[in-house]
Simulated scan of single mutants.
Amino acid sequence: MSDSDLMKLYSQRILALAADIPHLGRLPAPAFSATRRAPLCGSTVTVDVCISDGKISAFSQEVKACALGQAAAAVLGAVVVGRSRVEILRARDQLSAMLKQDGPVPADPFGGYEVLISARDYPNRHASILLALNATLDAMPE
């Protein structure tokens, strides 16, 4: 990967998101928890949730990932409270399609994932980018 490719991939906006992840840490008494690991790079995300009326009422995340995985967790953390499992599933599927199939940016309130469009060309980073959404889905009852 050339220096210009790295600069494109790790834009200032991505780095700013990675430095300010909402809901970082662990909940003191979560109803559900899940951890996901990206096998290729070793990134991990652990998510704690509480659910009320089918929606996330409390959320926390412990993120040990590259800047792209951290930025993706930050986008999720900014909008996750109040979301249903169906909304999280839709966001994950739309983000995956954006990365892997040149699909559109996920629908609002998940439009912040637009910052990660430059990662389309780096399939080895896709699993890390999807970690927070996948861990959240794992933590939510069906």
Rank of each mutant, 00 (worst) to 15 (best):
S2I: 02
S2E: 00
S11T: 10
R13H: 15
A16T: 09
P22G: 12
H23R: 03
L24R: 04
G25W: 00
G25H: 07
F32Q: 15
T35C: 09
P39M: 05
L40M: 14
G42A: 05
G42V: 01
G42P: 01
V47H: 04
D48M: 06
D48H: 08
C50Y: 05
C50V: 05
I51C: 10
I51H: 05
G54S: 13
I56A: 06
A58W: 01
K64H: 06
K64D: 12
A65Y: 02
A67D: 13
A67S: 15
G69M: 06
A71F: 02
A71D: 07
A72N: 03
A74L: 07
V75W: 01
L76R: 00
L76Y: 03
A78H: 09
A78V: 10
V79N: 09
I88A: 10
A91V: 05
Q94H: 08
L95C: 02
A97D: 15
K100W: 00
D102R: 11
D102L: 11
G103C: 02
G103L: 04
P104K: 14
A107F: 05
G112D: 06
Y113F: 15
Y113S: 11
E114G: 08
V115P: 07
L116I: 12
L116T: 11
A119C: 11
N124G: 13
N124Y: 10
H126E: 08
H126F: 04
S128H: 03
T136A: 15
D138A: 14
